[in-house]
Design a protein around this nucleic acid. Structure first.
Lengths: 199, 199
DNA sequence: CGCTCAGGTTAACGACCGCTAACCGCGTTG
DNA sequence: CAACGCGGTTAGCGGTCGTTAACCTGAGCG
């Protein structure tokens, strides 16, 4: 399971702002958070943010484009590593997505919640990245379930994202490793059901 | 599959407002929609809404309390009908939830997205209703998978909700019946995996 | 026929919000 | 050591939003 080593150097002010903005946006919604609150969360006052970003919209845009790019890049890396073995690749994609969902809960929340608040240009970019990421999954799932229709597989992949992305909202006594195992199980179980259509 | 007959009488103005408000809130977020827009959507102007609701918050509260109550009532009805057969009951709960997700997409979206915009009192009420609904599921899933831990089952139920509730965001060529079958399959598959822990 | 009242209208108020303007301390550098 | 510019500050502007006030109209009715 490819995990990049943790950062050791101190985060830049920009990164602090992005992190706090992500948390606040996820908690109260984009329109529900004022620039003054974001500033206060990093110890400066509202207008001070404009030394780092051209506006509030730009923070959301950078967050959403950033996570979409990291998801896609991570997925592509795993496709390259797997070398054509579909079972191993699917397992790797699932693990990677779980890591994302558990490591960046606020971002995962924003990702499917505040997309429509972006300017047309940014929204198109994010959607394009999302589509490419979905495509990675669809390809491998179709390889594993050749008898399933393409729309079914695409919908199933979206549904599994919904399953994996549900954890940010969840308060549970389970620790990280337990949650990881559980989500892995559920995701594999759901996709395995593509071979056994329900009554 | 218990489905109530469709309404034949014309909807009241209040109901029109609630329906349009639900759609708009789901599309652009609670804070992203103005009262003037809601009014315009039903052919009256902003302040005219105050003849029917004490405020914008009250519309959201009624929507969220309403759907939570209907979900719980529907679930309880199914529990009563099943008469203690866990397999049939789980299938019934899944079908009922799918019906909700496919019939009231905007409400399902609001349900897990705008809960924090409620006043403390209303939020507590909604959370309580949600908790009771989850409990129905947890009980039946535990009966079917007695070896699984309670926190695991609870997390799994939440994850399956995430799976089923993902459809509102989805654009697919599949028709309603196909989607229903697919979601049913995926949900059963996911929960079945509680017996086969992943590596 | 005149009263009432439900259900609208427009005008306007006060609060808030994103953003800009104007200013400033301070570390870096030629 | 003077000049500069990075990263802050506070004050305030313009616009938007939820809500209220004041008024209007037409149906129901004693």
């Amino acid at each position: 399971m490819t995990t990049s080593p943790p950062r050791t150097d101190a985060p830049t002010r920009r990164e602090q702002i992005l992190k706090e903005a992500a948390r606040l946006f996820a908690e109260r919604g984009f329109h529900g958070v004022g620039v003054d609150e974001i500033g206060a969360a990093v110890g400066i006052s509202g207008p001070g943010l404009y030394r780092h970003f051209p506006g509030k919209d730009a923070m959301l845009a950078e967050l959403l484009v950033g996570i979409s790019e990291r998801l896609l890049d991570g997925g592509r890396l795993r496709v390259a590593e797997a070398g054509g073995a579909p079972e191993a690749l699917l397992a790797s994609l699932i693990d990677g997505h779980i890591d994302f969902a558990l490591d960046d809960r606020p971002l995962i929340t924003l990702h499917d919640r505040e997309l429509d608040r972006l300017k047309d240009e940014d929204r198109k970019r994010v959607r394009q990245l999302q589509r490419q990421y979905v495509e990675l999954w669809v390809d491998v799932v179709r390889a594993l379930h050749p008898e399933a229709g393409e729309p079914e597989v695409r919908a199933a992949v979206h549904a599994v994202f919904g399953l994996l992305n549900s954890t940010p909202h969840l308060r549970t006594p389970l620790d990280r490793a337990d949650l990881e195992r559980l989500l892995r199980s559920l995701a594999h179980g759901a996709l395995a059901a593509l071979d056994a259509p329900a009554p």
